[in-house]
Amino acid sequence: MTSLENANPLVFQRSKERAILPEEEDDNVIDKIDSREVFDMIRGINDPEHPLTLEELNVLEESKVTVNDDDNSVHIFFTPTIPHCSMATLIGLAIRVKLLRVLPARFKVDVELTPGSHTSDVAINKQLADKERVAAALENAHLLNVVNQCLGGRAK
């Protein structure tokens, strides 16, 4: 087994399940998609290295998810646990793929590294923003398998 990049990460508390409000149970009210909802979609993604979720590692925070339902835009900043993390691209890709699957297609999604959180943030942001590179990455069976493991809940 190769050694882990960040062998002993700091673990954060998971936030509670979102409380269900009375208006959410009323069929006549339209619920807009908000930042908490998008955060809920991605917070359970597994870290590629640890049996922990991105939320527990504080890679994702609700405050760094911006959603505008009317303008169909979603913007997410994520923060790798260490500034030279080689998994950053993979994590970004996993977030993108998850949203591709569970967020309505009308949204334009931007996934970026939190400024200053990574040594090569510009390059990685460019890769993540390039639709064709993302699509090409998903053609790669091995890579897709790794991403699916991140999205598929805890390993059995």
């Binding site: 619920d31 998609i33 909802e37 998850k98 699957r101 569970v102 967020l103 309505p104 009308r106 999205l151």
Partner: peptide, 18 residues
């Protein structure tokens, strides 16, 4: 279904689609 007007439906749909 993942673009349903109700959040509770979207939540279940997101899980199912995933």
């Amino acid at each position: 279904a993942i673009d349903d007007r109700k959040r509770l439906v979207r939540k279940e749909a997101a899980q199912a689609r995933n």
